[in-house]
Amino acid sequence: MLGSGILKGLGVTAKNFVGSYHDPARMVTQEYPDTPAKLPEAYRNFPFLVTENATDPMGTLRCVACQICEKECPPQCIYIEKSKDKKPDAAGKPQLYPAVFAIDTAVCMSCQLCVEVCPFDAIKMDHVFEVAATNRFEGLLLNREQLAKPNEYFHQIRPAEAAEVDGRLTAERKAAEEKARAAAAAKAAAPAKPAAPAATPAPKPAEGGAAP
């Protein structure tokens, strides 16, 4: 019958109309900004630099200015200048740090390659999307101070990833400490060698026992 398709269509729209009042599947509007936007943990938008603590951000940046992210970035939006001196990092080793670390967020496409290639877990993806600037050039070029955010913030936005990174870094640090202790013990044992050449057999088992 001519018109039966039209009548069926009218029925479907009526069902959706009535459903919009009681069925959440048929009213999908979220009244943002009254209801906040729910972002999944994996959401990525613009990178940030991780600092170990919030009190001394520039002193505790994990970044060692190796410039790998600068090389791998597809639109070349990262600009790094190495420092002239070295500072001790969280494990105590003296490392270079970035004197200048700038990201042009007008160019950055949030592809996350910088995060993937960073060997030091120093740069991670942020969750910010309400970033508006009043100036297209200075406003969107973020420098080191603006990019640095503490590890607590990282835990807040990406709890699972931050926990995994922290676990890995702590394990690495522990392994490094054990190795350092073993090396120190070896060094401590070695000068004892020329001092007491007759007593060499005794320190050896101790040295062997100190090594993990």
Binding site: N16, F17, S20, Y21, R26, M27, V28, T29
Partner: peptide, 10 residues
């Protein structure tokens, strides 16, 4: 508003 409700939105 009616069109909106038909289209699952406010």
């Amino acid at each position: 508003k009616l069109l909106a409700r038909l289209q699952n939105r406010l």
